[in-house]
Design a protein around this nucleic acid. Sequence first.
RNA 1: GUGGUUGUAGCUCAGUUGGUUAGAGCGCCAGAUUGUGGAUCUGGAGGUCGCCGGUUCGAACCCGGUCUUCCACCCCA
Length: 458
Amino acid sequence: MSQKPSIPRGTRDFSPREMLRRNYIFDVIRRNFSLFGYLPLETPAMENLSTLLGKYGEEGDRLLFRILNSGNFLADTPSSALSSADSAALSQLICEKGLRYDLTVPFARYVVQHRDEITFPFRRYQIQPVWRADKPQKGRYREFFQCDADVIGSDSLLNEFELVRIIDRIFSELNIRAIIKVNNRKILAGIAEMAGAGERITDITVAIDKLDKIGQEGVRQELVQRGIAPEVIARLEPVISLSGPAASKLDELKRVLSSSDRGRKGVSEMEELFGYLAMEPSQSEVELDLSLARGLNYYTGAIIEVKAADVAIGSICGGGRYDDLTGIFGLPGVSGVGVSFGADRIYDVMLQLDLFPEQTGSATEALVINFGTEEVPELIKIISSLREAGIASELYPDPARLKKQFSYADARKIPMVIIAGSNEIAARQVTVKNMKTGEQTTVSLSALPSYLKEGRNS
RNA sequence: GUGGUUGUAGCUCAGUUGGUUAGAGCGCCAGAUUGUGGAUCUGGAGGUCGCCGGUUCGAACCCGGUCUUCCACCCCA
């Protein structure tokens, strides 16, 4: 007896209907990346664990999918490790590869490995799946696609500016109302310094990152729980809860952070960025959010996060600047900045808001009815002429009853059906049926391609 | 990783305090219509009730485990 087939938890099949829609998203993203001069890159699904481990924090290491070594790897494994029941320690001995967790670290690895053949500043885009051993929920998958654009080897804030422009263009084209939140790790570090707890920056940022979720009082409790002194919290709060336009927040920060070199640097970076942004209006709301921290601990400068205004699904895009990601791989002093679009969440947002265009992507425009072996030679010529003219078309493969062939066209939503039986063929004509209106027209064989092309817009 | 939740036909869901042969709508297939889809009518197929085990004379229903779904925490696209 055959068992029911299934796929691993948190993974999905994508049906043709879903793929057409996903490709629509990928096309918009890829076109805009390309428009800004980014070049395509792909890296392997699996990386050496040494490349991956330690780059995403303790939590990230736990969420890495590890790949068991090939062969009889247990033969060389000490029996003490096997009997210790310590999975983490054992996996170090029997796994040397893992599935990639994001696209940024493999990119940094690539840059270091290929530094001699790269022209800097190097702009690359990369659209590939990543894997995380997370517990799945809605909008959270174990296999999902990221669409990354990064520029490496340039400190200029113009890069941050252009990334915001890309984000704005892409979400505008997809008709998603986006809220783009920007902050700067240097400002956060400055705030922590100013509050007299510079070394507690991680605890402080993790806590204040939850501001919009748990509120001011919640953040206060979280900070207390993380052992932040009450007087530090008291100095933190008024800064975090600054409101108003970016310019006035930055003015206030300049005063508060005057004693912190790093903080001042962060403020001037944001002033420059918002200066550029003022030169070209964005369709999306771009907000300086001082509570935005983001988890990935390799960020050092600007951090960016995008949320859909109309759907609660977490962030649909995120990124930031990392000053020394390549340093761990032996190439110090190369700064990079990038953003990552979450294609799967964008899909979920668009589905929920019903934003997909009626016709997404390629679909058959014309179906040629199969009348039988007598007519097939002529039908092959007809369909060949249609494809030559760039009209996506199919010949029904079996000489089935017309009812069945028309039902097929109906189910596939094919707009035109070409009927060419012996009568039509003898007269060098075909009958074209418009499946939407039910209207039938007789068209000469030679005029058929142009007739169908004209009908596209009606 | 911690705690909770969900699962019945292809889909959406009924199913009485545990009781004989598990239902509906939609969809699918066939016919009414041998060169015409959508509407209508008629008929039909399709289920080891997620899976494994237990309790019981008897389980879709109760219990345990497991897988899956979704939710909160954690974290994140």
